[in-house]
Computed example of a mutant assay.
Amino acid sequence: MPLALYLLALAVFAMGTSEFMLAGLVPDIASDLGVTLGTAGLLTSAFALGMTIGAPLMAALSRRRPGRSSLLCFLLLFAAAHAVGATVSGFPVLCATRVVAALANAGFLAVALTTAATLVPPDRKGRALAVLLSGTTAATVAGVPAGALLGTLLGWRATFWAVAALCLPAALGILRGVPAPASTRGASGGLRGELAQLRRPRLLLVMLLGALVNAATFASFTFLAPVVTGVAGLGELWVSVALVLFGAGSFFGVSAAGRLADRRPGLVLAAGGPLLLVGWPALALLAHRPVALLALVFTQGALSFALGGTLITRVLYEAAQAPTMAGSYATAALNVGAATGPLVAAAALTGGLGDTGPLWASGALIAVALAVAIPVRAVRAAG
């Protein structure tokens, strides 16, 4: 794989740390800013909503610009948003900085996904995407737990500062390592033609399934800290352990699925979907047992990212006739799910199900995905 892919993954690592780090910081943010736990959890939805809107918007605005300069602009804007977020004293302003950061993240990821697909042969998009997404999974293994630990020791604001600082070496790496010719985003055909691809039922179906799987992932991941400290009765430092295990499972899942996403996507979806459906209720029922909790966190991380990564790879294949916008469609699908999941989880959290409510919500979302996929033979269509 080209070196440029790994440099893009480094930047995705910084952004993934920010996107996922709230799972370990929600209780502290809620306490510091005087809002409820459910309200603080909506920061994740605000971020995902900004990414959903920003992915196609930013991709459209930057489609005629060289990929390298677009990537640098988005990354530096992302860093600035976190520096401002670290200094705010009110929840609405913090929420606004998350939206700005999300717009920058969306633009970056949309350009990066499209760039990654151009750096490899057409039949290796799945592997290229696995490398790129390894930045996200590495964030859950190292960046997010480190952020949670830093937040525990120095407060949540220190984590925001750390993310801003992490963007700087990533920007330097992109400037020196991403070749301008390979990243140039000269469009073939007009924007209207690329947007017309969204009328294709198969593309929309795969995007819907990807959104549902990611919604399930974020529904539980956003509120994992209360499960660890409340239901399982473990100390706050065990939140970092749980996040590491989830991230390790994610890394394993996306890496394994990356080799199958190009050739055997139906196998990944047909085998992983039912297992993921069983896993979320099992986690809810066994969350009070620390050993079972930690084991299932690893398993669900692996299955979630294996399915999610495979479905997003299929988006790139199905949107092959939209070369500059395909990455934005994949990003939008991911973040429709990331925005919806915490909203559903927050409702379950306050609806009488207690701290395990988000886990049950994740199971329900996967059940909806399977209910959509099975009657229309979506697995076979994706293959």
Results as ranks from 00 to 15, higher is better:
4 A>H: 09
7 L>F: 06
7 L>D: 00
9 A>M: 15
11 A>T: 13
14 A>I: 10
14 A>N: 03
20 F>N: 08
24 G>M: 07
25 L>V: 13
35 V>H: 13
42 L>K: 09
43 L>D: 01
43 L>W: 09
46 A>F: 14
48 A>H: 06
49 L>M: 10
55 A>P: 05
58 M>N: 05
65 R>A: 15
81 A>H: 01
82 H>C: 13
89 S>M: 14
90 G>D: 13
93 V>M: 14
94 L>I: 10
96 A>N: 08
102 A>T: 12
106 A>Y: 09
107 G>D: 00
110 A>D: 00
116 A>H: 10
116 A>L: 12
117 A>M: 14
120 V>M: 14
132 L>C: 06
134 S>L: 03
135 G>C: 15
137 T>R: 02
138 A>H: 03
138 A>S: 15
141 V>K: 05
150 L>C: 05
152 T>H: 13
156 W>I: 11
160 F>E: 09
160 F>R: 02
162 A>D: 11
167 C>H: 03
169 P>H: 12
179 P>G: 03
182 A>E: 12
185 R>G: 01
186 G>H: 11
191 L>F: 02
196 A>V: 08
196 A>F: 09
201 P>G: 01
206 V>G: 02
213 V>R: 01
213 V>C: 07
213 V>T: 08
223 F>S: 04
224 L>K: 07
227 V>C: 08
229 T>F: 12
229 T>R: 14
231 V>W: 07
232 A>S: 15
233 G>K: 05
236 E>F: 10
242 A>K: 12
243 L>P: 05
244 V>P: 01
250 S>N: 14
254 V>H: 03
264 R>P: 00
268 V>A: 02
269 L>P: 00
270 A>K: 05
271 A>F: 10
274 P>F: 04
276 L>F: 08
276 L>S: 05
278 V>L: 14
281 P>D: 08
283 L>W: 01
283 L>F: 02
288 H>M: 07
296 L>D: 06
305 F>W: 12
310 T>Q: 03
311 L>Y: 04
312 I>H: 10
314 R>D: 00
320 A>E: 14
331 T>V: 14
331 T>S: 13
335 N>P: 04
339 A>L: 07
346 A>P: 02
347 A>E: 04
347 A>H: 03
357 G>T: 07
358 P>M: 04
359 L>D: 09
360 W>E: 05
361 A>R: 04
364 A>T: 05
368 V>L: 15
370 L>P: 04
372 V>W: 02
372 V>E: 07
373 A>V: 04
374 I>N: 06
374 I>V: 14
375 P>Q: 07
381 A>R: 14
